[in-house]
């Protein structure tokens, strides 16, 4: 132990280091603020920059600093006049919701099987399913495009002749189907974890009381796994809503042809002119549904991702 006189010796740097070693709590708190600030800046600055762009009048799109060159909130109205952006958003929401419903339904059956039944080859099968989600969606683009534009002969029947794949270009089916396949593995994994934690006795009780196995799934297991179902659902919705490749590929970009918001944003760019302020405004508007969803559901998502536990 050093005496009082020793402690007061040395320059400010030395005193500060000694304080930091003796009282690490304040240092950690300081580091926490630094790191938090870093993440806040890196995630929020792009949104701020979008707002700056959106508010800058279209003819002032040069040498923009940290503040908009002028103030033109009219861009948020003009974006709807130039393109039916609300239709693009509607398309995206419909596609994302449909996918979410399919994923939750199919994922629940799969999750029930993986989480609650005993069968041979369960683990390898689950790992195989998860492996699908390792592929980048871009890897499937060419074959999927061929498939959904009717260019693939599925099977050749003796009387009917060749059966072509459906021509789903410009329809939601061309997007919902691959999205469901791509987002199922994650949801199955989440739901499996949750469903496996529901005590067997509850399912037995429901079956004795008069449900089938599927009835017990919907009346007891799913309601008790609500945080897990919400997590899987929200993650799927956001994933599909934000998806780029397949959304961009499977329509011709017209709002009436089920084109999602990707096309909405891109279409503000013409052959000779690009309305960057409108693109920025559209990006902000397009992100709103996801922001609202996350704010509303965040408690459920957090508890679903971390805990995954049911009392008892």
């Amino acid at each position: 132990m050093s005496s009082a006189t020793d402690e007061e010796e040395g320059g400010p740097l030395r005193r500060w280091t000694r304080d930091a070693i003796q009282n690490p709590g304040s240092t950690y708190r300081g580091l926490f603020y630094v790191v938090t600030l870093f993440f806040l800046v890196t995630t929020l600055f792009p949104f701020y920059w979008l707002l700056v762009l959106a508010l800058t009048p279209g003819d002032q799109m040069r040498n923009i600093g940290l503040l908009p060159n002028g103030f033109n909130p009219y861009a948020f109205v003009e974006m709807f006049e130039r393109l039916p952006f609300h239709v693009y958003m509607f398309n995206s929401i419909v596609i994302a919701l449909t996918t979410t419903v399919i994923v939750l339904l199919v994922g629940s059956f799969a999750g029930y099987a993986f989480g609650r039944l005993r069968f041979r080859g369960k683990t390898p099968l689950l790992l195989l399913l998860l492996a699908i989600s390792y592929f980048p969606p871009a890897a499937f683009i060419l074959p999927l495009f061929q498939l959904f534009t009717g260019n693939v002969t599925l099977v050749t029947l003796p009387v009917v002749g060749a059966v072509q794949s459906p021509n789903w270009f410009n329809t939601p089916g061309a997007m919902v189907t691959p999205f469901s396949a791509l987002f199922l593995p994650l949801s199955i994994f989440i739901l499996t974890t949750f469903y496996s934690q529901i005590p067997d006795g509850l399912e037995d009780a429901a079956r004795v009381e008069g449900t089938t196995r599927i009835g017990a799934l919907f009346r007891v297991i799913i309601p008790l796994s609500a945080p897990g179902v919400a997590t899987a659902g929200v993650l799927t919705f956001i994933g599909v809503y934000n998806e780029f490749f397949i959304s961009f590929l499977m329509t011709d970009g017209q709002a009436e042809n089920w084109a999602p918001i990707v096309w909405g944003v891109v279409n503000y760019q013409g052959q000779y002119q690009a309305f960057y302020n409108l693109m920025a405004a559209a990006s902000i508007v397009g992100v709103l549904p996801v922001v609202i969803l996350v704010v509303v559901a965040q408690e459920r998502i957090v508890s679903g991702l971390t805990a995954g536990a049911l009392k008892e």
């Binding site: 005590p199 006795g201 037995d204 009780a205 079956r207 004795v208 089938t212 008790l224 049911l310």
Partner: peptide, 16 residues
Amino acid sequence: KDRDIAMVFQNIALFP
């Protein structure tokens, strides 16, 4: 469900 029975379980198994 088609056996006309009712059961009481060791872990009670009330629906929470």
